[in-house]
Design a protein around this nucleic acid. Sequence first.
DNA 1: ATGGTCGGAAGCCGA
Length: 266
Amino acid sequence: MRIATWNINSVRLRWPLLKALDAALAPDVLCLQETKCPDEFFPRAEIEALGFPHIAAKGMKGYNGVAILSRVPMQVIEDAPDWCARGDCRHLVALLDAPGGPIELHDFYVPAGGDIPDREANPKFAHKLDFVAEATAWTATRAPTRRRVLVGDLNIAPLEHDVWSHKQLLDVVSHTPIEVDAMARWMEQGQWHDAVRHFVPASEKLYSWWSYRARDWAAADRGRRLDHIWVSDDLRGKLQRQHILREARGWEKASDHVPVMVELAK
DNA sequence: ATGGTCGGAAGCCGA
């Protein structure tokens, strides 16, 4: 069972790249973020034709938007909160009909948080912290549930080597101690385990995002690991491998994020 | 030290 996540940065613009993603990773389930697409315009038929017959999409005009594309049947669960009471499309939950038993899958798109890492000076940063706090409290109530997977663009790079320069990013939104602490609480209270770092030592650099603003993203290699896959304790022993598809950043009309995938044994 | 580039509700705003 291969579960992947990708911030696609406009599904209408980039859905054709799913073909290359599928050739490289062959995910059974792919969670998308930043689809930027109202549900009535979601390229459903095109994506079904690529081999994902089960599609759940929750989008809005212009911003945000999440979707789950699946080869296995799934049931969308509707009892999640309206995060920060904004009506944003930043979260989908589905129960996957997975081999070995159902998996509760969460697809999150955490607010980026703006530029200034100060709750008082920057309402976007306050929104990010509030969102993570609500997600922490809610997923903690799910903690006793077996076989859970949480993926998404969480917009936080928690470890020193999840960014190109720990020292230079300590005051940059995505890597500040307040965000890193909030993420640690989220993982702890939800009993989540980092499924990608499970395979890659903390001392090794690991990124899933490179800014569009670099002249040469690969040469500069100033990345951050903003996209994550977490699993519940009972799935830790099932982890087979991880793959961060770095080459996707070099694709024609690339997203600034690359797909991240984890394989679970039955 | 600053500004650099994307995408869409565009000629600005969010990332």
